[in-house]
């Protein structure tokens, strides 16, 4: 089978521009979800480390539940469940349909929740890796909890957490493909459309896979760089 590579180009018949845009949407939904995950993961790790019994139990339940349910199902719940809630609320207010919610928002929230559960474990592990003496030295010079968190705990924990966060980010990118079920035109959705209209599914799904590989590879390099940067000075000097 011969392929017309111009299909991927930017000419009149080329899918280049829409694919590029779709890749942008993939990155955007992933970044949104990941940042939501950072916030939830931090709170959850904090709850597990420093919370009282009920707070700990709630954080534990959150991680167990979100790690025990398929990602696809979580997205379905937020998207279709969200629509059901909106329709019900609209009906109560006497509004006329049709009602819809944003696939971007539902997808980003769903993946953010999933990622938050994973990131909580990453942050918790990173906290426990901080040398106890380093915290003691901070207490003995009179640092209060918040200052100690900001100046001593967070910078050290973050540097330990970077590889784990990198893995979480890679998962988020791959999970973002599932958001295509909501109709959001990200990479997965766009290549499905292209595959259908050109009747060249292998070509376009392969192209889609390559787009994901490019995104994950570049992110991998970025996280590796961040890891090296954050560990400057932490390992013994190589002479």
């Amino acid at each position: 089978m011969d392929y017309d590579w111009e299909l991927l180009g930017f000419g009149p018949d080329g899918w280049g521009p829409v694919l590029l845009r779709a890749a942008g949407v993939t990155v955007a939904v992933s970044v949104t979800a990941f940042l939501l995950g950072v916030v939830l993961g931090t709170l959850c790790a904090w709850a597990k480390i420093g919370g009282n019994r009920p707070v700990r139990a709630a954080a534990e339940a959150y991680t167990v539940i979100l790690r025990g349910i398929p990602d696809l199902l979580v997205i379905y719940l937020f998207y279709f469940g969200g629509r059901q809630v909106v329709a019900w609320a609209g009906g109560m207010l006497g509004l006329q349909g049709p009602f819809d919610i944003s696939g971007f928002a539902a997808g980003a929230i769903a993946i953010g929740l999933i990622s938050g559960a994973g990131q909580a474990e990453v942050f918790r592990g990173a906290y426990h890796a901080i040398p106890v003496g380093s915290l003691e030295a901070a207490r003995v010079v009179g640092m209060r909890r918040f200052l100690m968190f900001r100046r001593i705990i967070a910078p050290q924990a973050l540097s330990t957490a970077i590889p784990g966060l990198g893995n979480q980010w890679q998962s988020v990118i791959k999970e973002s493909a599932l958001v295509s079920v909501t109709g959001l035109v990200e990479t997965m959705r766009q290549v499905t459309v292209a595959a259908g209209s050109t009747e060249m599914p292998f070509f376009f799904f392969a192209a889609g896979a390559v787009i994901y590989l490019i995104i994950t590879s570049i992110s991998g390099l970025v996280f590796k760089g961040a890891e090296l940067w954050s560990q400057r000075g932490q390992a013994p000097a190589r002479l």
Binding site: M1, Q170, I173, K174, E175, S176, A177, L178, S180, M188, V191, T192, A195, M200, P201, F202, F203, F205, A206, G208, A209, Y212, L213, T216, S217
Partner: peptide
């Protein structure tokens, strides 16, 4: 490992289910 861990499972499923039939 790079190929299969670097891309989403969903696209792998579609590639096999819809894509392989492209080849006579």
């Amino acid at each position: 490992v790079f190929l299969f861990r670097g891309s989403p499972l969903l696209i792998q499923i579609f590639l096999i289910y819809y894509g392989l039939g492209n080849f006579p």
